[in-house]
Amino acid sequence: MGNIKVQNEKLKKITDFALSNFVIIAFIVLFIASCFLSPAFLTINNIKSVLIQNSIYAICAIGMLMIIITGGIDLSTGSYVCIIVCLTAGLIQKGNGILSIVIVLLLAFGIGAVSGSMVACLNIAPFIATLAMTTILKGAAYMYQTGQSRRIDGTFLPNWVKSSTFGIPNPVSVMIVVFLVFLFILNRTRYGRSIYAIGGNKETAYLAGIPVKRYLILTYALGGLCFAIGGVLLCGRLGMGTATVGDGYEMDAIASVVIGGASMSGGSGSVVKTIVGAMLMGVLYNIMNLMGIASYPQMILKGVVIVLAVLLYKAK
C-alpha cells in the first residue's frame, strides 16, 4: 500500500514536472524528429539560418513576456518594428552612423513609456492603449517613408548583421545578450521580482510598497526597447527601410510567450521557456519547409500548436 502511494506521488511529481516544462521536452522531441524527417535539417547552415531567422522573433517575444507578466499586452510590436526599420535606414542614410541606432533605441524606449503611462496613469486597458499606439506608429512610419528610397546596402549595419563573431552570427549573439540581460533582470532584481507581484495582484503589490505605476511604465518601455532591437536587426537584414514589414510580429511574440507557459492574466512566465517557445515555432516552420509543406497548411498547424500548448498547461 505504502509503496504504491510513494510511487503515485513520484509519478505525480514527474507528470507535474513534464507538464510545466513541456515546451522544452516538446522542443527536444521535435528537434530529434526533425533530424530523421529531413537530411537537410541537421546541417550547420540550416541550424544557423533557423537561429538567424528567429532571433528577431525571440527578442520581440522577450519584450512581450515582460509586459504579459504584469498582466498587460502590447499589440503594437509590429508597428514598432516597422517604424524602427524605416527610421534606422533613414538616419543611416543621412550619415549618422552608429548614433542612429542609439537614437532609435531611445525613441522606442520613450514610445514604450508613453504606452506604459496610458496604462498605469490614465488607466486605459493595455489592449486599447497599445492598439491606439499601433495605428499611430504605423501612420508615422508611412508618413516618414512615402516617396523615399531608403536603401542602405553596403553600410555598417547590413554588413554587421550578416557577419559572425567567433563563428556565431551576430543577430544570434544579440539575442543571447538580450536573453541573459532579461534573465538577470527578472530573477535577480527588485524590479523583476516586483512585476511578477504586480501581475499576480496589483493591490497587494502596491500595499507591499512596490512602486506599481513606475514599474508598469518601465515595463512597456523595456518592451519597446526589445521590439526596437528586433527592428534594427531586421533593417540590417533587409538592407533598406520599408513600411511594409512588421505585420503579425505581435501575434508571433504572444504565441511564443503563451507556448512558453506564461498566463495571459499575468503573474507568471519565464524567459528560458519563452525563447524555447520561439525556437519551437521556428524549427516547426523550418522542418515543414524542408519537407515541402505549403505555407497555408503551416499556418493551420501553428494555430493547432498554440491551442495544444495552452491545453497542456491547463492540465497541470
Partner: peptide
C-alpha cells in the same frame, strides 16, 4: 485574499515581497 497575498505565488515569494530591500 485580495490585498494580502498573491495566491498562486510561492510562500517564499509572498513573505519576501515587502522586504526586498
Amino acid at each position: 485574499k485580495t490585498t494580502g497575498l498573491i495566491l498562486n505565488q510561492a510562500i517564499r515569494f509572498n513573505i519576501s515581497m515587502a522586504s526586498l530591500s
